[in-house]
Amino acid sequence: MNADVPKLSICIATLNRAAFIAETLDTIVPQLRHDTELVIVDGASTDGTDGVIAPYAAADARVRYVRLERNSGVDQDYDIAVSQARGDYCWLMTDDDLLKPGAVDRVLAALDGSRDMVVVNTEVRTVDFSGALSAGLVGTRHDVEYAAEDRDRLLRETAHALSFIGCVVIRRAFWMSRDRARYYGSLFVHVGVIFQAEAPRTLVIGEPLISIRYGNAMWTARGFEIWMFKWPGLIWSFPNLEDASKSRICAREPWRQLRKLWLYRSIGGYAPDQYRRFLAPQPMTAWSRTLSRGIAAVPPALANAVSSAYCFLVARHARMNIYDLARSANASFVSRAVAKAVGF
């Protein structure tokens, strides 16, 4: 490898994260080595993010800050970050989550040139990091290898983790060789890059190296659109993957599942506006339409209380759902009591 070319570029696309990004950078910058760099692409923030980042860039030549004149969307901004990077590999890191100590060294040790991608396991915590919601988005605590022909197994075993872009470390040449523009606006450009053709040779690191600040994503308010339409639309768009594998990740049309509509009503993500915008144009039976419209009209506090009671009695393991219910604008005394009972 050319000594002037970093082995790893940590690439962050950010927008209006002045309140959070310093905490993120404080877990990354001390881990940078001579063969690493940090590239931050700011999609025209208006909240003073530039002022937060400036001291880091001024103090360390390995930190490069690129401010765009206009916001192009998260997908294109990550693509710009990779284009600006100089490293052989790019870690598509987020702007409000935290690297664990030793994470960069652990990833660098895995970049031996034989792999196109490393997937980093991640733990999920509450928005203030005080509580644990998931010990890891990948189900294994052991490292696992995937060959190029293992694309269906890779999807089945890692798609849940890959919905979080920060777990992806990818060979820059592999990224640049793929069609990225097709996936602008999907919110998951990295998944399009990975699965549009033969899959990258991949190592999954089973040890969690990132702590996710759950519920703080810029797109949280668009959750219904994203998880009912955008995510399944992307997963089911890959013709080279088996339907059985795709169905393990999500239904082709999850919005037809009444229990999902009820959950989104419970957390404030599904209401008459969402019904009219997303479901009214869809083909469905008269009975399904009546039920879908009816769920949107259920008093949200009632839906929240019923869902919270169900989680307490039947599904205490669904910690992220319990957390969502308790943090919702529709939160009831039941949801707050359940959250307290499970330790939030």
Rank of each mutant, 00 (worst) to 15 (best):
M1C: 04
P6D: 06
C11D: 08
T14D: 02
N16I: 08
T24H: 04
I28T: 05
L32R: 10
R33Q: 12
L38D: 06
I40P: 00
T46F: 05
G48H: 11
D50S: 15
Y56H: 12
A61L: 12
A61H: 14
R64I: 09
D77N: 13
I80W: 04
V82L: 05
Y89S: 04
L99G: 03
A103E: 06
D112C: 10
M117C: 14
T126L: 03
T126K: 03
V127S: 14
D128R: 10
S134G: 09
V138N: 07
A161H: 06
R172S: 02
D179H: 12
R180E: 08
G185H: 08
S186H: 09
V189P: 00
H190P: 03
H190C: 00
F195W: 11
V204I: 11
G206I: 05
L209W: 01
G215Q: 08
M218C: 08
I226V: 15
I226W: 02
I226T: 10
M228N: 10
L241M: 11
D243A: 15
K246R: 14
K246V: 07
E253G: 03
R256M: 10
L263T: 07
G269N: 13
A271T: 14
R277D: 12
L279Q: 04
S292R: 04
A296P: 00
L302C: 07
V306T: 10
S308P: 12
R319N: 03
Y323W: 14
L325K: 02
S328L: 04
S332H: 08
V334P: 00
R336W: 12
A337V: 04
A339L: 15
